[in-house]
Amino acid sequence: MRKLDVPSWLREPPSWLVLTSLLVLWQVATWVFKPAPFLLPDPISVGRALIANPTMYLVNAYYTTANTLIGFGLSVIIGFGLALGIVYSRFLESTVYTTLVAINSMPKVALAPLFVVWMGTGNTSKIAMAFLIAIFAIVIDAVLGLRTLDTEIVDLGRSMRGSPLKLLWKIRLPNALPSLFAGMKVAIGLSLVGVLVGEFVSAQHGLGYVIMAAQGAFDTPRVFVAILLLSVLGTLLFKSLEFIERRVIPWHVSQRAVSH
C-alpha cells in the first residue's frame, strides 16, 4: 500500500493558516447562526471596532504592557535576590522561604481590592499585583536552579580553591539560568494576569479597563478587540523571553535543537 500523497502544509499546517481558518470559521458561523452581536460579534465587526479608534487601544495597551513589564522586572530582581539569600542562609530559608510558600497557597487575586485601597487606583496597585503574583514562580524556580548542583561539581569547585563569590559567579549562577528562565516564562504570563486583575478592580486606563468599560456599555466587539490584543501581547511577551533565552543559554539541552 502506497502512502497517500498529502502535501506538507496539510500534514503540518503552519500556525498562520490555522488561525486564519479559525477566523473564517468564526465569520461563517456568525453568518449561519446569526447570534445577537452583543453575545458574539463576527470578526469583521471586531476588526471595524479596532480600526474605528486604534490610538485608544494603543494607549491602553501601552499602560498594560508597561505595568506588566515593571511588575515582572521587579519580581525577577527581587525574587532572584531573595532566592540567593534563601540558598545561602539557613535563617532566610526557614523564615522568608517558609512565609513565601505559605502566602503562595492563597489566591493572590483576592488581594487586588486591598491593593487599590492601599495604593490607589493608579499604576502602583497594578504593578504591585503583577509583582506579587509573579514573584513566587521566580523565587521557587531560582532556588531550585541554584540548589541543583552535582555534588561532584561542588567538590570540584572546592578542590580548585575558588572563593565563594567566584564559585557563585562562575558555576552556580550559570547552572541556575535554565531554571530561572523556566520561572520567568511562567512569571511573565502571571504578571499580565496580575495587571489585568488590578485594572478590573479599579483603573483609569489599560486593556482591563477597556474590557470593563465596554462590558458596561454592552459593546461586545470592543471587549473582543481588547481580548485579542491581550492574547497578542501575552504571546509577544513570551516569545521575547524565548528569544532572550536562546541567546543567553544556547548551551542548554532545551536550546540545542534550535541552535544547531
Binding site: 572546592r158 578542590s159 558555576i171 550559570p174
Partner: peptide
C-alpha cells in the same frame, strides 16, 4: 581544606556545559 597544588578528576567528568 583543599591544599594548594591539588588537581582532582572524578568518575563523572563534570564539565560545565556553558
Amino acid at each position: 581544606g583543599p591544599p594548594v597544588g591539588l588537581g582532582m578528576v572524578f568518575q563523572k567528568d563534570v564539565l560545565l556545559d556553558w
